[in-house]
Simulated scan of single mutants.
Amino acid sequence: MKKIGIMGGTFNPPHIGHLIMANEVFHTLELDEIRFMPNAIPPHKEHSITATSTQRLKMTEFAIKQNEHFKIEPIEINEGGVSYSFDTISKLVESEPDVQFYFIIGGDMIDSLHTWYRIEELVKIVQFVGVGRPGTLGKTTLPMMYVDAPLIDLSSTFLRNRLSNGQTVTYLLPESVETYIRKEGLYGTK
């Protein structure tokens, strides 16, 4: 049976923290691949998305292109609307019955996992994999496999703020992502 990690998120923008987390899970669990799955409209985020879904998908493609085991899963972007993990994972499990999916989440999502839509059903169809994140508890009573990874105190919000203030993001974003952001004038860049 093929083992595939799913890493969902807004990726607004994708950064080295996402890549390190995915890489650690990939190697620790000996997965066949990791699919990065940008969501259309996240139900758990309160901030407004400042890049379009197409731009976030493109940035994610740029971020992962150096790793042959990292792929794009565009299902939520293609479907549009609010992206509920239960609906998406159900579709993936149905369309790929020969795959064991591992849903990778960070400490902030672990802390709020109990609030997710249809979570009691979701944990029965996918194996959750939690990775710690600075400033979060990273604890849940729901079924969770944990993977240790270097803790990087970095967020997309922090990067958007730095970009809008004209500060450096060197080494925090893949160079191709920063180039795309500046070319598109995202996050207040010119």
Rank of each mutant, 00 (worst) to 15 (best):
D108Y: 11
L29G: 06
E24V: 05
G106P: 00
P13R: 10
G5Y: 04
L186I: 04
I105G: 03
E79Q: 14
R56V: 08
I89E: 01
M109P: 00
S85W: 02
L163I: 10
I89P: 04
G8N: 14
K65A: 14
E94L: 14
K58P: 07
S85Y: 04
A40D: 15
S85G: 00
E121T: 06
L159I: 11
E94W: 10
I77E: 06
S156G: 06
E96F: 06
Y146Q: 13
L154Y: 02
Y84K: 05
G138R: 07
G185I: 06
E184H: 03
K190E: 13
M59D: 13
E96L: 08
R133T: 13
V177H: 01
N12E: 15
K71I: 05
I104P: 04
V25Y: 12
F101S: 04
G8A: 15
S156N: 02
L151P: 01
P42M: 10
Y187I: 10
K2V: 13
T140C: 00
A63K: 03
K71W: 09
V82P: 01
S85C: 06
Q100P: 00
L92E: 07
T52A: 10
V169K: 07
S95D: 13
H44D: 09
I72Q: 14
I20Y: 01
T141A: 09
V126S: 06
P74C: 09
V169R: 06
D153N: 10
M109F: 04
P143T: 08
I125M: 15
F101E: 01
A149N: 14
T10R: 09
M109L: 13
I64R: 08
Y117E: 12
L151D: 01
S85F: 01
A63P: 02
T168M: 09
M1S: 10
L122A: 05
G132P: 11
I72V: 15
P134L: 08
D111N: 14
S164Y: 01
S83H: 12
V99I: 14
E120L: 01
I152K: 02
F101A: 03
